[in-house]
Design a protein around this nucleic acid. Structure first.
Lengths: 205, 205
DNA sequence: TTATACATGTAACTAGTTACATGATTGA
DNA sequence: TCAATCATGTAACTAGTTACATGTATAA
């Protein structure tokens, strides 16, 4: 889903300003599986407002900037139902952290350690956050299902990192810390120059 | 990481053509955490070739199109090390499937069922695929770590779906299948029109 | 005969990020 | 006094997707 769908989804739960939508994506029920910045939220709201999917009402506030509170229209509700019926996009998962950890042998052990710790903290924060709001109303069964799913994943991730960090760190240490990096970056080493034909199958595997 | 980093990573394991890089992203060691299409791979390879991070050699093949086999240069290796040292991007997770499942009450039960089954098959395929190649060489400890992480996540996901699908499906059925959808889409219902100020906090929560 | 695998690439488009502009209030 | 929170928005840029163009060989 794109920023439009996300905004529509948040507004289907209740009126909100662009700022509040953003906040909701950080902490609300959609925080498990979506994210969007102001740079995509504001243009999306404006366009949907022009198209009649939502309406905006400017609220004057004392002491702080005016806010524009949006409300989903019936047309907007139907648009959301349409989005729900569309074939879901192929789920793609890209992880910068895993990318780096794959090359752990090319980094100093303390960098790898910091990387894992940071990730652990991230998952634990997420778990704590999800646990702190039981929110189990049977009105929206999908909400509980999705929250449970997120919780299960975050817990599995945290458990894995916790149980395997020493393993990885030990394996790097044995390697002589930066020896692997030096070997990799050395002008001549790390590749058999006269055996290029044999390598592609390895890469493709 | 972007398409450039991904290509560099694959090439650091061995020479490959654009086509082979793509294949490797579907099945190889990076399939756990990255994906890229031809439309981003080919331009990335060309640019990196111009910049001297990789070199390309055209191989004539009988009976099939020529292929351009790329090899990472020393400059390319240093570039990869640079990427590894950069602060990792904030990990963002967007899921079309979870988005839909959140609104399960607005969809026919059989659609929801199909959605979950599809996902279950996806995770099981991934698990089977990851298990089928033990590949435990101590040379690249990060490779095993990352594969294990992916496996742990996919297993947790599959387990959750398996154990909770009936729960969700039952909750929807009780609701009278499409009654919720009708109520949601009905012109007047689903929102207290005269209590707009109270709603934002709910959305933001 | 039909689809898939092999193989590379471009053009047009869509979407999203980053940085900037503006400015008051509140808490440390 | 400094940072954070509230609040909205635009412009320039970056990146990625989709559809197209081209063509052979092989397996079902």
């Amino acid at each position: 889903m794109d920023a439009r769908a996300i905004c529509l989804a948040v507004l289907s739960l209740g009126d909100a300003s662009g700022y509040e939508i953003r906040k909701s994506l950080e902490a609300g029920p959609f925080s498990v599986f979506s994210e969007a910045g102001f740079g995509s939220i504001y243009p999306a709201l404006r366009r949907m407002s022009e198209e009649g999917l939502i309406t905006g009402q400017t609220e004057n506030q004392e002491g702080r900037p005016d806010k524009k509170v949006y409300r989903i229209t019936q047309k907007g509700k139907l648009a959301l139902l349409d989005i729900l019926e569309e074939a879901p996009a192929v789920e793609r998962f890209r992880s910068d952290h895993l990318f780096r950890l794959y090359f752990a042998h090319l980094m100093p052990a303390r960098t790898v350690e910091a990387l894992i710790d940071e990730r652990l903290t991230f998952y634990r924060d997420k778990i704590e956050h999800l646990c702190s709001r039981p929110d189990c109303g049977s009105k929206r069964p999908g909400a509980d299902f999705v929250r449970g799913f997120g919780l299960a994943l975050y817990e599995a991730a945290a458990r894995y990192l916790d149980e395997h960090r020493h393993e990885l760190l030990a394996a790097i240490a044995i390697d002589g810390e930066l020896a692997a990096k030096a070997a990799f970056a050395a002008p001549q080493s790390g590749r058999e120059i006269d055996a290029p034909a044999a390598v592609p199958s390895q890469a493709a595997e």
